[in-house]
Nucleic acid binder design. Structure first.
Length: 467
RNA sequence: GGGUCUAUGGGCUAGCCUGGUAUACUUGCGGCUUUGGGAGCCGUUGACCCCGGUUCAAAUCCGGGUAGACCCA
């Protein structure tokens, strides 16, 4: 089967996930991913970057139970309404039916906040900043898809409590810095949209969606940041005593990103030959393919092992592929798996004191001197990362087009005037089969008319077809 | 929620109407020759979703279950 990314993104995506060995779809529960070794290594690297960023900004890692009593789950009314139709229930334990049913967490607000109310007593306990990397469960009824629409979700969620709304707002700004640092490593571009009132997180004051453009012009939400104000701290009674002895409710935020990051990396960088992985997350950053011919096997393999050791000592993840296949066959296999840099070593190279390289991201070939192989390889990997990041951002920006009419709407991310009314918003979505992504989080100058009612407006909104 | 369809080695699949020995390709394993863009030959392991019924005989027909895909609301 041909893998044609531009012509048929959906087929291409499913094909890549299978052929690159990221997941085994044969598990008999819809939407539950079996993480195979190669895919899990990628996810783990992404998790490591997330841990590093959160740890260095004063967050503490915690781990809360998977099950939440129905009584706690129902304390915040908007929240339960939002998740009502998509949570899994535990109703039995052994042979007994439970008198208080247990929710399998769809997210952990209602697990954490009863504990927060015990943990937070004084203004000196604030800010409280914790996170966990766990699996959550949501009963998706629509068609599922590896890493993008799943029923068991691997994600990180950070939860913070602050004494004032301003402090909570500063946390949102810090979250955006963390985002930028992580995305530089994953080479994923993103746009920030303040979600509409009817699309914000159930219970939130406001929600910022983090959206990445897929090759088919649709936007994939890869994460979100929520400002809760006191919407949860009131029902969960999370209060602190301030310096003047007054008791106040905390202001809260949350931040989360999931395995959709893996889906976004596949979609943003992959090509017709397969996966293209950013060097920081690639399970193998370099694959070495020895080119053996009659009589020189020992000499070539010895040299290849030396290079492997030198690169490993430099902290690079290397695979020496010395299995008994033809080189061409190995090239294809490692290209499907997206290894960023391939080194070829044969007698011709050894005689010239070089190793031949081929970049996965742009196909460029050349040679690196054997005498400074480590620094040469490191430099190339960083160049690849930087080029991937810049190319992806360029595409993300090019994807957005400004429109002033709903005739012949292109398959892009759409930018247009919106008066901001809920009525126009709903009409826009229902009549055009589009999803309003919201308004830009970073304000944009705009002068024009609402695309629905035609009233003059300085507000601008974004939309795309839903993925 | 309502409906339609599907289930055969690890993967893809033929056979089912008209009951009797299960097909091809691929992968895996062993061997020999090969190795700068998907090698060739030889040998070999491996399957009819589950339970029940009809029958001398069931992958095939019938009933129920399970899992999956699609369509409609």
């Amino acid at each position: 089967m041909h893998m044609e990314k531009e012509a048929n993104f959906n087929e291409w995506y499913n094909d890549i996930v299978e052929k690159a060995g990221l997941s085994d779809k044969r598990y008999p529960i819809k939407g539950m991913n079996v993480w195979t070794p190669y895919g899990w290594k990628i996810m783990r690297h992404a998790d490591e970057f997330i841990r590093k960023e959160l740890d260095s900004t004063g967050h503490d890692e915690v781990c809360f139970p998977l099950l939440i009593p129905e009584t706690e789950f129902k304390k915040e009314k908007e929240h339960i309404k939002g998740f009502d139709s998509e949570v899994y229930w535990v109703t039995h334990a052994g042979l007994n039916e439970l008198d208080v049913r247990l929710v399998v967490r769809p997210t952990s607000e209602t697990a954490m906040y009863p504990m927060f109310s015990l943990w937070v007593r004084s203004h000196t306990d604030l800010p409280l900043k914790v996170y966990q990397i766990v699996n959550t469960f949501r009963y998706e009824t629509k068609q599922t898809r590896s890493f993008i629409r799943v029923r068991e979700i691997h994600f990180f969620e950070s939860h913070t409590c602050h004494s004032t709304e301003e402090d909570a707002q500063k946390q949102v700004e810090e979250d955006l810095e963390i985002l930028e640092n992580i995305m530089k490593k994953l080479c994923i571009p993103y746009s920030l949209h303040t979600r509409t009132e009817w699309d914000k997180f159930p219970g939130a004051y406001y929600t910022v969606g983090l959206d990445t453009a897929m090759p088919n012009g649709r936007m994939l939400q890869i994460g979100s940041i929520h400002h809760y104000r006191t919407n949860f701290s009131i029902p969960y009674n999370i209060t602190y005593e301030d310096a003047d002895g007054e008791h106040k409710h905390v202001h809260q935020t949350t931040y989360g990103m999931s395995e959709r990051l893996v889906g976004a990396m596949i979609g943003v960088h992959g090509d017709d030959k397969g996966l293209v992985l950013p060097p920081p997350v690639a399970p193998f950053q370099i694959v070495i393919v020895p080119i053996i011919s009659k009589g020189n096997a020992d000499a070539v393999l010895d040299a290849a092992r030396k290079i492997t050791n030198a690169l490993e000592n430099a902290g690079i993840r290397v695979k020496l592929d010395d299995c008994d296949e033809r080189p061409g066959s190995k090239f294809y296999d490692w290209e499907i798996k997206g290894v960023p840099l391939r080194l070829e070593l044969g007698m011709r190279d050894i005689d010239n004191n070089v190793v031949t390289f081929a970049r996965r991201d742009n196909g460029e070939k050349g040679t690196i001197s054997l005498s400074d192989i480590s620094s040469g390889a490191e430099l190339l990997l960083e160049t690849i990362r930087n080029d991937m990041y810049n190319r992806a951002w360029k595409k993300q920006k090019e994807c957005a087009v400004t429109i002033d009419s709903l005739k012949d709407v292109p398959e892009n991310t759409l930018r247009f005037g919106w008066c901001g009314s809920e009525e126009c918003g709903h009409r826009f979505e229902d009549e055009n089969d589009l999803k309003l992504l919201g308004t830009p989080y970073v304000k944009e100058e705009f002068k024009g008319k609402c695309i629905v009612c035609g009233k003059p407006t300085d507000k601008v909104a974004y939309a795309s077809r839903s993925i």
